[in-house]
Design a protein around this nucleic acid. Sequence first.
DNA 1: GCGGAATGTAGAT
DNA 2: TCTACCTTCCGCT
Length: 272
Amino acid sequence: MPEGHTIHRLARDYAARFAGRGPVTVTSPQGKFSDAAALLDGSPLHTADAHGKHLFLGFRPTEWVHIHLGLFGKVTFGDAPAPPPTDTVRLRLENPAAHVDLRGPTTCALITDAEKRAVHDRLGPDPLRTDHHGDPAAAYARISRSRTTIAALLMDQKVVAGVGNVYRAEVLFRHRIDPYRPGKDITPAEWDSIWADLVDLMRQGVRDNRIDTVRPEHTPEAMGRPPRVDDHGGEVYVYRRAGRPCHVCGGEIRTAGLAARNLFWCPTCQRA
DNA sequence: GCGGAATGTAGAT
DNA sequence: TCTACCTTCCGCT
C-alpha cells in the first residue's frame, strides 16, 4: 500500500530490525539486483531514510540502496530463519533474528550520496519530514502560481512528496475543495489547513500502517451504520467509493480519470 | 486460466 | 496524453 506513510513506516521497520545489528546477509534471489547484493553482502546497515515514496537503506556512509515500490511493490518482514525465497524476491536482507523480502519494486538500485541528494532535490516537501524537506511554503510557491488542478498538483511529487491517490482524494474531501479547482485559486489559509491535515493524517498512517480519514462524527457508529473497513485497509470518505452514498450528505460519490489515475469526490460536498 | 485493476513513475510522442 | 514496467489478487469463464 505504497503512499508516503507506508514508506516511512518501512524505513522505521527496516532500521528497527537491521540497523546497528551487525552484518547483514544481502541477496537477490530473483537476480536483477545480484551484482549490487554481492557488493553489499556482509555489510552492516547504518540507517534508513524516506522522502515521499522513496526509501533509502544506508549501508555505508556513501552507499545507499534506493527503493521505490511503484504501484505493485511489496515488502514483507519475518523472523529468522527465512524460508526459501520465491523467484520474485528482488532483495532479501537477513540477520540472525530477522529477514525481509522486497518484491516488484519500480526501483531497486545502488546509488551514491550525490545521487541520493539528486533524488531529494527533485522532490517537493514531504508532510512526514521535520527537516528542510518538510517545508510547506515550497509547495505553495508552486501551487499558487499554477493553473493546473489542485488534484493533479497534489499527486505531482515535485510539488508535494508522499501524497498518493488515496490521500489526495481524502484530503480534498475533508476540506470541501473541488478537485478541479486551479492551484492558483487555493488561498494561503486553505493550503495551511490542507498541509496541517496531511501531517496529521499521514503520521497517523505511519503509526497504524493504514489510511483512516473519517472524522469521529462521520464514522459508521456515529452515523448509525454497520462498522466497515474498506478493502485497502481503512475507513475513507470517497476513495474507491464511486456510486455509493457520501458519508456526510448521502449524495452519490463520483469518479473520473485525471492524470491517468482515478479521481473520487463528492460533487455536493466539494463545490467550486 | 485469463483479463483487469491496483495506493506509481519515467520516457516517448 | 500514451505506454511500458514491476506483481498480486480477484472475478469471471
